[in-house]
Amino acid sequence: MSGNGNAAATAEENSPKMRVIRVGTRKSQLARIQTDSVVATLKASYPGLQFEIIAMSTTGDKILDTALSKIGEKSLFTKELEHALEKNEVDLVVHSLKDLPTVLPPGFTIGAICKRENPHDAVVFHPKFVGKTLETLPEKSVVGTSSLRRAAQLQRKFPHLEFRSIRGNLNTRLRKLDEQQEFSAIILATAGLQRMGWHNRVGQILHPEECMYAVGQGALGVEVRAKDQDILDLVGVLHDPETLLRCIAERAFLRHLEGGCSVPVAVHTAMKDGQLYLTGGVWSLDGSDSIQETMQATIHVPAQHEDGPEDDPQLVGITARNIPRGPQLAAQNLGISLANLLLSKGAKNILDVARQLNDAH
C-alpha cells in the first residue's frame, strides 16, 4: 500500500501541473516587456503551470559599433537563445518575429505568432524639431536608422535628408537623439515604442507609400524545439490566425527572394473581405531603383483552434497545428507568387547589386 502511495506522490510531482516552463529572452527592456506579455497570456491559459524567465545577451546586443547589415552573420539576435533551447536550458524563446530568419536551424520551429501590433515605422524627432515631419525637416538634416530597408525607401522619398546608421537598443538610440546634436530624427518601429509606453515620442507614423515595413514587423514569434510536442501544444494558444497568415505570406515572399538583413526588402499586408493583399518591394541601397507589386488571394481566416493538420510540417519556419492547413498554404503560395513576379521584373539584379555594395563598404 505504502509503495503505491509513493508512486502516486511521484506521479503528482512529475505531472504537468508541477512543471516549471523556462522562457528565454534577450536582456533589453523591450525584450523583457514583450516576454512578460507572452508569459502573462500563458499564465492565464495555464494557471497550474509556473513560468521562469531567463534573460541573456546576444551577438546583436554586444556589437554596437557596426551596422547590422555589415556584421555579416545571420541570427544576430537569436543564436545564443537557440543555443540555450538546444541544450534544454529553456523550453521556449520569445523573439520579435522580424529577427527570426525565414529558414531556422534544424530542430527549431516557430510554435506561435502572437497578435500583431502596429507594424509601421515611426519617426521620433529631436526636441528642437518636435512638430515637424520628415518632409518639413531642414535641408541636409541627419536621420538615424539601423535599417537598409528604411534608408533606401526614405532616401527616395525625401532626397533633402541624409540617413546615417544608429545602433543600440531603444533606450540607447533615444538617448543619442536627445543628448547629442548629430541626429534631427530617428526611425523606429511603432510597436516597440508603444510597448515601452513611449507613445508621446511618436512624431509621425510612416504610411506604406512612404515606407513599407519589415517582414514580420510588429509581431512576436515564440520559438521552440520542433519535436517538443508538449510545448508546441502549450504555445499553440498564442497563435493569432490573421497575423499568422499575413506573416506566412510575408516570410514566403522574403524567403523566395532570398532577402535578408543586408538587402532592402519591404512588405505591406492587409486582410479585407476574405482577401489577403500582399505588397512587396525591393530597392537599391540608395533607393534610386525599385520594383513594387501587389497581389491578392482569397483566404478564409479560420477561428482559433479549428482542428489543424496533425502532421505539422513547417511552413517558412512556422508550425501551427491548430490552424487549418489550406489557408496557410494559400498564404505561402501568395508570397511565392509575388516573389516570382518581382524576380521576373529584375528584382534579383537589384538585390545582387545591393548585396555587393553593402559587402564592399
Rank of each mutant, 00 (worst) to 15 (best):
S146P: 03
H207Q: 12
E86I: 13
E179L: 09
N340R: 08
L76W: 09
T145L: 08
G60W: 05
Q296W: 07
L92V: 07
H256G: 15
T109C: 11
M212F: 15
W198K: 11
Q204M: 00
A189D: 00
W283F: 02
V93T: 06
H120V: 09
L81M: 08
G72F: 14
L85E: 03
H207K: 13
D352R: 10
Q34N: 09
F108S: 04
D65Y: 09
V103E: 10
G192R: 04
D91G: 05
E139Q: 15
D230T: 00
H199M: 13
N88T: 13
G197K: 03
E258S: 07
T58H: 01
R195Y: 10
H83N: 13
G326L: 03
Y277R: 12
Q155I: 15
T269C: 15
D311S: 05
T25M: 07
L64G: 13
E209S: 05
T243I: 05
V353A: 08
V103G: 11
G197Y: 07
K62G: 15
L148E: 04
W198L: 12
H256E: 15
E250K: 02
P159E: 08
T35Q: 02
L238K: 02
G72S: 13
T133F: 05
R251T: 06
T294Y: 00
E135R: 13
E258A: 03
R201G: 08
E258W: 04
P138G: 08
L137G: 03
W283G: 08
K79C: 11
L148S: 07
P159M: 08
K70C: 08
N200H: 14
R246C: 05
N171Y: 13
T35E: 00
W283C: 06
V123T: 13
T243E: 05
L276S: 03
L193P: 07
A151F: 09
L81V: 08
V143C: 14
H83P: 06
A270P: 03
I318K: 15
S337N: 15
L42I: 10
I53P: 15
S284L: 00
G203W: 14
E310S: 05
G308K: 01
P309K: 13
A249E: 02
T298F: 06
P309E: 03
V222W: 01
E306W: 12
K87H: 08
V222S: 02
S37Y: 05
E162H: 05
S184R: 12
I33G: 07
K74S: 06
I248M: 05
A152K: 07
Q275T: 01
V142G: 10
G131S: 11
F77S: 04
T145D: 02
H305D: 14
K176S: 10
A252P: 01
F77D: 03
A360W: 01
L137V: 11
D352C: 02
K27P: 11
T41Y: 10
I336Y: 00
L170S: 07
H268N: 15
P313S: 14
A266T: 06
V235C: 02
S141D: 08
G203L: 02
A331E: 04
I336W: 14
H160M: 14
L343W: 15
V23G: 02
V23L: 10
A67P: 04
A354S: 05
A297M: 01
E162I: 12
A67D: 15
T78L: 10
G317F: 04
C114A: 05
P302G: 15
S141H: 11
P101S: 08
P302R: 04
G346V: 07
T294E: 00
I21D: 00
L342D: 02
R251N: 06
K128Q: 06
V143R: 03
L188D: 02
L154I: 05
V265M: 03
L232C: 11
L170F: 11
V202D: 09
K132L: 10
S284C: 10
V316I: 10
I33T: 12
L137C: 06
K272N: 14
K87F: 09
L245T: 01
D307N: 15
T190G: 11
A219S: 08
Q50C: 00
A152Q: 05
E310H: 15
A226F: 10
T190K: 10
R22K: 13
L329D: 09
K62L: 06
L137I: 14
A219F: 00
L245M: 14
A270E: 14
K115Q: 11
E139F: 14
A122S: 10
K345D: 05
H256C: 12
G197L: 04
H199D: 15
L220G: 03
Q153N: 04
S262V: 11
V23D: 00
S344G: 14
K62Q: 15
S165L: 06
A226P: 07
R175Y: 06
L315M: 09
S147G: 00
C247V: 09
V142H: 10
V301H: 03
L238G: 01
G274C: 04
I71Y: 11
A354M: 12
T109V: 14
A191I: 00
T319G: 06
Y46P: 02
P313H: 06
E258M: 03
H126G: 11
P106C: 13
K79S: 14
K79L: 09
I33E: 03
L30H: 00
R22T: 11
D230V: 11
Q304E: 13
D289F: 14
F125K: 02
Q292W: 06
D311I: 04
G274V: 12
A226C: 13
S96W: 00
D289K: 03
I248L: 11
P138F: 07
G236V: 08
G308C: 10
P47N: 13
W198S: 09
T102M: 07
V39G: 07
L244Q: 15
S147D: 06
P47F: 08
T78W: 04
E179R: 09
E306R: 12
P138H: 10
V123E: 01
Q204H: 12
Q356K: 11
I21H: 07
G281K: 02
R19C: 04
S288I: 14
A191T: 08
C261G: 05
R251I: 03
E210C: 15
Y46G: 06
C211V: 10
H256R: 11
S146T: 08
S262F: 00
S45H: 08
Q328A: 06
D311F: 03
I248A: 03
A214Y: 02
L206K: 02
M212V: 04
S69F: 09
D230C: 03
A55E: 15
R175F: 04
V282C: 07
E223A: 04
S28E: 01
S37L: 12
R175C: 11
L234C: 12
L81S: 03
L174S: 06
S57A: 06
P105V: 05
L42A: 06
S37W: 13
P47I: 04
L64S: 06
Q217K: 04
Q275C: 02
G203P: 01
T145K: 02
P47R: 11
I248H: 00
G317E: 00
W283N: 12
L206I: 03
F163P: 12
I231S: 10
D230I: 15
D240G: 02
N169R: 10
L206S: 04
H126Y: 08
S75R: 12
K348M: 06
S75T: 15
N200F: 15
G107A: 10
K227I: 05
A331R: 01
A297Y: 06
A189Q: 03
F158L: 11
A339S: 07
A347W: 00
T109W: 07
R175T: 09
Q153A: 06
K128M: 15
K87N: 14
Q217C: 03
G287C: 05
F163V: 13
D178E: 13
E250H: 02
E250A: 06
T172R: 09
H207E: 14
Y46M: 13
T172N: 12
I71C: 09
T298Y: 10
V222P: 00
T136L: 09
Q180L: 12
P159S: 08
I336M: 05
G280V: 08
L334V: 15
V142F: 08
Y46K: 09
